[in-house]
Amino acid sequence: MVATGEYAAELRGIAKRYADIVAVDYIDLDIKYGEILGLLGPNGSGKSTTLKIILGLVKPDSGSMKVLGINAEEDPVAIKRLVGYVPESPRLYEFLTGLEYLDFTGDIYGINASDKKTRIEEYLEALDLEGREGDMISSYSQGMKQKIALISAFLHKPKLLILDEPLNALDPKSARIVKDLLRELAAKGVTAILSTHVLEIAQAMCDRIAILYEGRILALGNMEELRKKAQLPGSNLEDVFLKLTGTGAIKEIVEALLK
């Protein structure tokens, strides 16, 4: 059963190592219902691993976690029923058509036939996939595959969306639709956790942003709180991010490369 508490996800002391590499280093994180949380961080900072841990794709070495009020250790399948997930590079079944793939995922989540038909048709139209839905996915561009992955994540009306670089390869119109859709869904109480490297997107879309570095949360809050933490009032997210992650010496690096 889904709890109606304050938090859609509660992470306590979550840690994950791969051999000698610390992917996630004892993080605590509370994500409210209806919130859009952005995870930012340099490559290898633990964003994707954190998302996978929340979904149950990666088992943490230590810590405890509740997702949608469900203890992840006790009933991971119940969590998966309520979550929509888009991985960083979604590998779809290329031998299926886009329509067959969506039909397949609709059945996986137990959507009834009439709802499935309505929703699939609406999403295909909205994301400009009409006319190509009967073609095999192997012939799709990266952006079209991303759209199919996004639709399959939205299809069953999940309570929590876990999106790893959701706007990757999308055309501007589709990206805008997805952004607006996420905002509307958030207003209806759907929580979204997304990772991105596009700081403008994070700044525009997210209620709160968590900046990860070497598996730890360096800073967490809305734009104003992050600016305060970085002691950069009035700055944009790029400056805040570079200051907090200690990767601000860009000018020197570029000059060295040009030598």
Partner: peptide, 25 residues
């Protein structure tokens, strides 16, 4: 070239497998 498997209106198919005790998944 892309193999176009289906054209026209999408009609979700009802599977016979359901009658043999298989869930939709």
């Amino acid at each position: 070239p892309a193999i176009t498997v289906s054209k026209g209106v999408y009609v979700p198919k009802t599977s016979l497998l359901g009658k043999f005790g298989f869930s939709s998944l």
